[in-house]
Structure formats: C-alpha cells, structure tokens
Amino acid sequence: MLDDRARMEAAKKEKVEQILAEFQLQEEDLKKVMRRMQKEMDRGLRLETHEEASVKMLPTYVRSTPEGSEVGDFLSLDLGGTNFRVMLVKVGEGEEGQWSVKTKHQMYSIPEDAMTGTAEMLFDYISECISDFLDKHQMKHKKLPLGFTFSFPVRHEDIDKGILLNWTKGFKASGAEGNNVVGLLRDAIKRRGDFEMDVVAMVNDTVATMISCYYEDHQCEVGMIVGTGCNACYMEEMQNVELVEGDEGRMCVNTEWGAFGDSGELDEFLLEYDRLVDESSANPGQQLYEKLIGGKYMGELVRLVLLRLVDENLLFHGEASEQLRTRGAFETRFVSQVESDTGDRKQIYNILSTLGLRPSTTDCDIVRRACESVSTRAAHMCSAGLAGVINRMRESRSEDVMRITVGVDGSVYKLHPSFKERFHASVRRLTPSCEITFIESEEGSGRGAALVSAVACKKACMLGQ
C-alpha cells in the first residue's frame, strides 16, 4: 500500500517536472537572447534605426563620474514606483581627507489618484512632500541643488532636461508624456511658492545606482535594477552614441532593455503563462523582457503555473481556492519566502493557508518547484541581457580580458534567497573573457542622484555659470 502511494507521488512529481521543464533555458538559448539583445542595442544607438529599435539606448548626458572633490548639501528625489523618497545628502571631506556622503531620508507613498490623475496632481503632491521634508529638517530658507531620480523612459536633451516617452509600472498621470519632466517639477514648486529649489540633474535609477557604486569602486561602469521592473545602464564610447554629437570619451546610456521583445525577438521563448500575464497587464505587448524578470510579474506567473497544475490534477487534489483564482493573489514576496523555507515546509504551508488552501507535504514541495522554475528562468533571462552589455563593452574597448564592476539594486536581487547566485553564475558562463565584480548599492537611487548633481554643480562652477 505504502509502495503504491510512494509510486503515485513519484509519478505525480515526474509529471510536474515535465510541465515545469518549459521554463528551462539551455545555454544556447541564452546565447541567442544575448546576441539578439546586442543587435537591438546597436539599432538603438544608431541614428537611422533608433526610432524602430525596441531597446532605445537613451543617452543620459552623464559623462563624468564623481571624483571626490564636490562638497555641499544636496536634496535628492526618487520616483520610480508607488513609494517616493526625499533625501538630504551631505557631501563633504571625511576623516583623513576621505570623501564622505551622509544621508537623511523619508519615504512617502503615492496615492492612487496622483498616479493615475493628471501630471499637475502628481507633481503638486511631490512638491508637497518636499515642503514637508524641508519643514522637518528646518531647511526651507536654503535654496538647495536638487537631483531627481526618475525611473521611467526619458529622452534627455541635457542633464536637466528630459522628455517622458511613456509611463510604465502602473503610472498613468495624463499630460506628462511628451513633456519635460524637470519643467513639470519646477512648475509645481513655483505653484507652491513656499520654498526654492535648483533642479540641476535628472537621472534614471540605473544611472543613480551606477554612480553610487562608483563611489565604492571606481571600476563600476554598469548599473542595473532588478526590482519591480528590470533595466540597466553602462558607459558607452561616445563615438557609438549617434544621437549625441561628439566622439570623445564616454557617456552613460540608459538601455531601457525592459522593452526588448516588443518587436518579436522573444516570441519563441514566451510561454502561455507569459501571454496571460501580458494580456492582463496595463501595457499589453510592451516591456516583454521586463515581464519575464521583474517583481511586478513574478508572483503572478507562479500563480498561473499553480492553476495549470491544479487543472492537471497534480496539486491540491485538483481544487483551487477562490483566493488562488484571484489575479495578483500570489505576491512576489511569497516566491522569495517559499524558496527561503528551511525544509520543514512550515513557511510554505503558512503562505498557502493564507490563500485558503490546506496543502499536503507533496503540495508544498511542488509549489516550491514552481517558484524555483519561474525565478530561475528570470535570473537566466536577466543574465543574457547583462552578458550582452558586458561583452559589447569588452569588444568596443578591444580588451582581451576586461575587469568590470556592476552596481545592482532592486528588491528581487536583494531579497530573493537564490536569485543573485543563479544570476551571477549564468552571467559568468556567458562572459568567459571578463572578470566581473557585483556590488549592491546602498540607498543607491538617492545618493547617486545627489552625486550626479554634485558633478553638475562642479561643472557649472568651472564653466562660470
């Protein structure tokens, strides 16, 4: 009897593995994704193909990295998701002549009506938060230079001027797309009239992360975010950046690689679950690469896999709870928690219980395998993109072996128990001629924006502006 049951459990697990095998990517698959990513990057950089390229390769006008001589107080704003952060950054000489960066910050959550109302409502709310922060720190009387981390696709015309191309991540505030974001912020500050600010720089969160990590390690020339969304930036040779005049030196390019796949480059790798996630998203047909990796989508992918296993009578005796059938019910943090389970399955059992399920031991094991399959594919897909960037940098610099540091931020990278190990191992397999160091950014977005502002202020002083 026991043997029969054991055989049935083994057969069930084997069927589960057959279904989950769809998520496995072979090294040849990853090399294919990497080569296609490089081709799209090239198209994004070139003037004649930029418009139709899915990977936009947006110039950021960040050319210099901090040298350690900029000092002063800077205000930093960070808008990239449902939370908005205001930070005071003091850049100065530390002990023994070292450079020191001290920060104080406060988080504000953005109400739904500000995210989806008008641009005026959104930026009025942001300036209200700045006003509140300055009151708390008794700094209303000071006109501070301000660095703005704005983590949406922007076409820069200068370091302090950028046109919002399109909202992502659930934002829909009308009247912002096609307009200068810094102008919208300046107008809102003017409307309030109770404080003055000098907006000197606007950067993407990947750029802010790279600059913040450069402060720790001067070989950091790539910034990457794996959180709600997924994106990367890197220092490109100016001669390859056709959208900006000049051939000397390097400029940081914001790849906006989340949109890779929007022209069909990933079609052969998309599964039924991916198509369902895409169809029910706020932007169907867009940001397809990001939807395979980002935390906004990972939990939902797992939920759809679990429903398939229920329908195949391989999980929960073929019956799903009402909660499990509800879109968004299986949160991405559950994926991390399930994979963090120590082996007694308590954590998995508790999560499934909150979803109205009474799982068996085998159910718990199957749910864990589903989570591992989805998150491992995410790590491997992400590795193909980064390997594409790094191999490109090595080739354009004609280096036999390139040493490089990548600064990384984002909740999936930082909080998932195995993502970074799987990701690092896969990147290294795909970049055999590179020695890569990964560092995690601390308060990256805010500190990085302030350091970019410090560079901009120093330049302005040198130019006598």
Rank of each mutant, 00 (worst) to 15 (best):
L2R: 07
D4F: 01
A6Y: 14
E9K: 15
K13P: 15
E14N: 15
K15S: 15
A21G: 12
Q26S: 11
Q26G: 11
L30G: 03
K31V: 07
K32D: 06
K32S: 07
V33Y: 01
R35G: 15
R36N: 02
M37T: 01
Q38A: 07
E40A: 05
D42L: 13
G44M: 07
G44V: 00
L45S: 14
R46S: 14
E48A: 13
T49W: 11
T49R: 14
H50E: 08
H50S: 05
S54P: 12
M57S: 06
Y61G: 00
V62L: 00
V62H: 02
P66F: 13
S69R: 10
D73Y: 02
S76K: 02
S76E: 02
G80S: 14
N83K: 06
V86F: 07
M87L: 07
M87F: 08
L88A: 07
K90R: 03
G92Y: 13
E93V: 08
Q98F: 12
Q98P: 02
T103S: 07
T103V: 08
H105Y: 10
H105I: 05
Q106M: 09
Y108F: 08
Y108W: 09
I110N: 13
I110C: 12
E112Y: 12
E112I: 08
T116N: 13
M121A: 12
L122A: 06
L122M: 12
I126G: 02
I130H: 02
S131A: 10
S131C: 11
D132G: 03
D132F: 07
F133W: 03
K136S: 09
K136I: 09
H137I: 11
M139A: 14
H141M: 07
H141V: 04
K142T: 08
P145S: 06
L146Y: 08
F148W: 09
T149Y: 13
F150Q: 15
S151F: 05
P153A: 07
P153Q: 14
V154W: 11
R155I: 15
H156R: 11
E157C: 15
D158E: 10
I159T: 15
I159M: 12
I159H: 06
D160C: 10
G162E: 13
I163P: 14
W167R: 13
S174K: 04
G178A: 06
V181Q: 06
V181E: 06
V182F: 14
L184N: 14
A188N: 04
I189P: 01
I189S: 03
I189Y: 04
R191H: 12
R191S: 10
R192S: 02
D194G: 10
F195C: 03
E196T: 07
M197N: 03
M197A: 02
M197R: 00
V200C: 04
V200R: 01
V203L: 02
V203M: 01
N204Y: 02
N204H: 07
N204V: 10
T206E: 02
S212E: 12
S212I: 03
Y214L: 02
E216L: 03
D217R: 05
D217V: 02
Q219D: 15
Q219K: 15
C220I: 07
C220M: 01
V222P: 00
V222T: 02
I225M: 03
T228D: 02
C230W: 05
N231I: 02
C233E: 00
M235W: 00
E236I: 00
E237A: 05
M238P: 00
N240M: 02
N240P: 01
E242I: 00
E248G: 03
M251L: 06
C252F: 00
T255Q: 11
T255L: 15
T255D: 05
E256D: 12
E256F: 14
W257N: 07
D262N: 13
S263F: 07
E268H: 06
F269T: 03
L270E: 05
L270F: 10
L271W: 00
L271G: 01
D274I: 02
D274H: 04
R275A: 13
D278E: 11
D278R: 05
E279F: 15
A282W: 15
P284T: 15
Q286S: 14
L288V: 15
L288Q: 07
L292R: 10
G294S: 13
M298L: 14
G299K: 12
G299Y: 01
R303K: 03
R303M: 01
L304I: 11
L304Y: 09
V305I: 01
R308V: 02
L309I: 02
E312W: 11
E312S: 12
L314K: 12
E319M: 11
S321H: 14
E322P: 08
Q323Y: 07
L324F: 12
L324V: 08
R325E: 02
A329T: 08
F330W: 12
E331F: 15
E331P: 11
F334W: 11
V335D: 00
V335H: 09
V335P: 02
Q337E: 09
Q337G: 06
V338P: 00
S340G: 05
S340L: 06
D341S: 01
G343K: 03
R345Y: 06
R345I: 08
K346R: 07
K346C: 12
Q347D: 09
Q347K: 09
I348G: 03
I348H: 05
I351P: 08
S353T: 04
L355M: 03
L357K: 05
D363Q: 00
D363I: 00
C364G: 02
D365F: 08
D365I: 05
I366M: 03
R368E: 03
R368S: 06
E372D: 02
S375A: 06
T376E: 06
R377S: 00
A378E: 04
A379L: 09
A379Q: 04
H380L: 12
C382A: 11
S383V: 05
S383W: 00
S383A: 10
A387L: 01
N391G: 06
R392K: 12
M393H: 11
R394K: 02
R394Y: 10
R394L: 08
S396D: 07
S398W: 05
S398H: 08
V401W: 13
R403K: 10
T405L: 01
G407W: 03
D409K: 06
D409V: 06
G410E: 12
V412G: 08
Y413C: 05
L415N: 06
L415S: 11
L415K: 09
F419M: 08
K420Q: 08
S426D: 10
L430S: 07
T431Q: 11
T431F: 07
S433A: 10
S433Y: 13
S433H: 12
E435C: 08
E435R: 11
E435Q: 15
F438R: 01
I439M: 08
I439C: 03
I439W: 07
I439V: 06
E440H: 14
S441C: 06
S441Y: 03
E442D: 09
S445T: 10
R447P: 13
A449L: 09
A449P: 08
A450T: 13
L451C: 12
V452L: 13
S453M: 12
A454C: 13
C457I: 14
A460Y: 13
L463Y: 13
G464Q: 12
